[in-house]
Simulated scan of single mutants.
Amino acid sequence: MGSLIRSFFQSVMKMFNAIVGMAGIAMVIYGLWMIRVWQKQTGQSPFDDSDYPVPWFIYTFLGLGVIFCVITCSGHIAAETLNGCCLYLYMMIVFLLLVLEGVVTADVFLNHHWEQDFPKDVSGNLHELKVFVGENFDFCKWIGLSILAAQGLSFLLAMVLKAMGPHRERYYDSDEEYASTRHPLLRNSANPPHVAVDPLYMPNK
């Protein structure tokens, strides 16, 4: 019964972790699209040395997408192996990510001049994203809440799996009853033949 419950929690954690991975893939694709637009506008790659200011928004969005994908891979490995170190590392990374997202969200909603806290975005993609979110606020709100919920539930499930511990082999209380079924794999359990020796019998020399 414990193995079934553990397997269920593993599957659910992988499912929520996959949602975070899909969000990371979408962010990477959007970051690659912004790189393509930047190349068309400037004729140079944003990673090349040029006289243009650094397009930090492209770097940030692409980096966050890669981080989401790495977190998804580490979470899948932690859920599959139930290794204590992997689960601790996964929980620490997700916790730091949730704290960072909470700080940024609080700054955006509480500070009306939040754009001044960031450098000027020369690519203009930050402004385009802001306009898109404003026009589709309800849709973006539910997408953001879904990602946050998936991250939070993945964190809680990792805690539950860490508390449950790894799979353990089931041993019976009475090992003597099953000794004959286990030993043949290691050694020959057949009894040696009994040879009766007559002490009065002397071989002919």
Rank of each mutant, 00 (worst) to 15 (best):
C86T: 12
M27T: 04
W38M: 04
P55G: 02
K40Y: 02
F61A: 02
Y30C: 04
G43F: 00
V54W: 08
L32Y: 11
V70G: 07
E101G: 06
V20S: 02
K40M: 14
G31Y: 00
G63W: 04
R36P: 00
F68S: 14
T81K: 14
Q44D: 07
C86N: 11
L64H: 09
E101A: 08
T60K: 08
I71P: 00
V103Y: 06
S74K: 13
L62F: 11
L98A: 15
T72P: 01
Q41L: 11
I93W: 15
V37M: 07
Q44T: 11
I25S: 12
L89Y: 06
E80N: 08
F57Y: 14
Y59K: 05
L32K: 03
G75D: 01
R36V: 11
I25R: 07
A26D: 04
I19M: 09
N83T: 06
F61G: 01
G21D: 05
I93C: 12
V20A: 04
W33G: 13
I67C: 10
V37D: 12
G65L: 07
V37R: 08
V104A: 14
G84E: 14
D107R: 08
L100P: 02
V103A: 13
V70N: 07
G24D: 10
V94P: 01
M22C: 09
Q39E: 15
K40G: 03
V103S: 10
P55D: 02
C69G: 10
L96C: 13
A79Q: 00
L82T: 08
I67S: 11
A78K: 05
G63Q: 02
D49S: 15
P46N: 01
C85M: 12
T42A: 01
I93Y: 13
V103W: 03
Q44P: 01
V28Q: 05
I67L: 15
F95V: 15
L87C: 04
G75Y: 00
L32C: 10
A78V: 09
V108E: 02
L100I: 06
V37C: 07
S45W: 04
V99S: 01
Y90A: 15
H76W: 09
A78Q: 04
S45I: 07
F109G: 07
T72Y: 08
Q44S: 09
T60Q: 13
I35G: 00
N83K: 08
G102L: 04
L64R: 09
D49A: 13
F47R: 04
F109W: 07
V94F: 06
A23N: 09
M92Y: 10
A23H: 07
W33Q: 14
I19C: 10
Y90H: 14
H76Y: 09
V28R: 04
W56A: 05
E80G: 06
K40Q: 14
S50W: 13
Q41M: 11
G84S: 15
